[in-house]
């Protein structure tokens, strides 16, 4: 078996999701090659060569790949794919964009957003917004897969793969890049943040949310709120995490003064690590928290901000 992993990068640096995807590939087993398609992306290739588990780094460096246009990347990947048993990409907006085109071109199904590898042809993936987990088996000749990063640990970077450049460039001629506006805000949006700190009714009033912002600034975190805090007028509705708000799954979720009603848990239970700070030790939030701190949030949160 041999596996092709498509790297996520911005031509300047490799994105972390690539490391988790390599881990998924290693779990499937076999030779792992990494494809970097971009423009002036040598630095990325250098970085990628260090990922352990990667055999070869293939670099397609050309203007047609500069902006990861799905029409162009998918032609390249489907051409390469015939030599592999599996093609994997991170389930980023980029991976989700071009991979189904690869699958359709190869006349195979795609297995989206796997969170576990059961065997070389069987995988687990969440369906119904994570409310059910399906185990799916593929009999296709090439398995086209996107990988949810939070399902796999990041591969370590102490390897030394060979770098080979590919002399390939196809422009489908269907689309062109106009512009890109990356969010400049210091604080990430709730749905894309890796760390979220949320406040509940225990915050007492809206000005106390500034305590959370101090922690958020230190961690590069987004600030969220529970429905109860929003209803009490402590926070605007677009900060709401939960059944009727945003569904989030960051690496770290810190719930402050949130009791943990099921309606809130529905919006954050897929977070990798959950921390609860609440003075009521019976609060249901402690039933789902990896780390709980029974303390007055007005003492604990400033102390947390100071110790980061």
């Amino acid at each position: 078996m041999s596996i092709l992993v498509i790297a996520e990068h911005d031509n300047g640096s490799l994105k972390d999701e690539t490391l988790n995807t390599v881990t998924a590939a290693v779990q499937i087993g076999g030779n792992v090659d990494l494809l970097i398609a971009g423009e002036n992306c040598n630095a990325v290739a250098e970085q990628a060569a260090k990922i352990s588990g990667v055999n070869r780094v293939l670099v397609a460096d050309h203007a047609v790949y500069a902006h990861q246009l799905a029409e162009n990347i998918s032609l390249l990947v489907s051409e390469l794919a015939v030599d592999y048993s599996h093609v994997l990409a991170p389930a980023t907006t980029n991976g989700k964009n071009f991979m189904p085109r690869v699958a359709a071109t190869l006349d195979v199904s795609q297995i989206s957003e796997i969170t576990a590898v059961v065997s070389a042809d069987t995988f687990k993936r969440p369906i119904y917004a994570g409310n059910a987990i399906a185990t799916v088996q593929s009999t296709d000749k090439v398995k086209v897969i996107t990988v949810r990063a939070t399902g796999f640990d990041a591969a370590v970077c102490d390897g030394s793969a060979t770098i080979e450049s590919l002399d390939k460039a196809t422009d489908a001629g269907l689309s062109s890049f106009v512009k890109e506006e990356l969010a400049q805000s210091d604080r990430p949006g709730l749905t894309s943040a890796k760390v979220i700190i949320s406040g509940g009714r225990g915050m007492g009033n809206s000005s106390n949310f500034s305590l959370l912002e101090q922690v958020a600034d230190k961690l590069g975190a987004a600030v969220g709120a529970s429905r109860a805090a929003v209803d009490a007028g402590y926070a605007p509705n677009d900060m709401q995490v939960g059944q009727t708000g945003k569904i989030v799954a960051p690496d770290l979720y810190i719930a402050v003064g949130i009791s943990g009603a099921i309606q809130h848990l529905a919006g954050m239970k897929d977070s990798k690590v959950i921390v609860a700070i609440n003075k009521d030790e019976e609060a249901p939030i402690f039933q789902v928290a990896d780390f709980g701190l029974v303390d007055d949030l007005f003492d604990a949160v400033p102390e947390l901000a100071n110790s980061l």
């Binding site: 195979v108 199904s109 297995i111 069987t122 969440p126 369906i127 994570g130 409310n131 059910a132 987990i133 399906a134 185990t135 799916v136 088996q137 593929s138 009999t139 296709d140 239970k269 897929d270 959950i274 402690f286 039933q287 789902v288 928290a289 990896d290 780390f291 709980g292 701190l293 029974v294």
Partner: peptide
């Protein structure tokens, strides 16, 4: 080419440690 073998409820989280 895809077959769904099984559909399960997601694993429920369990309480971790108090610090």
């Amino acid at each position: 080419g895809l077959k769904t073998l099984l559909v399960e409820s997601p694993q429920e989280r369990s309480a971790g440690v108090l610090v």
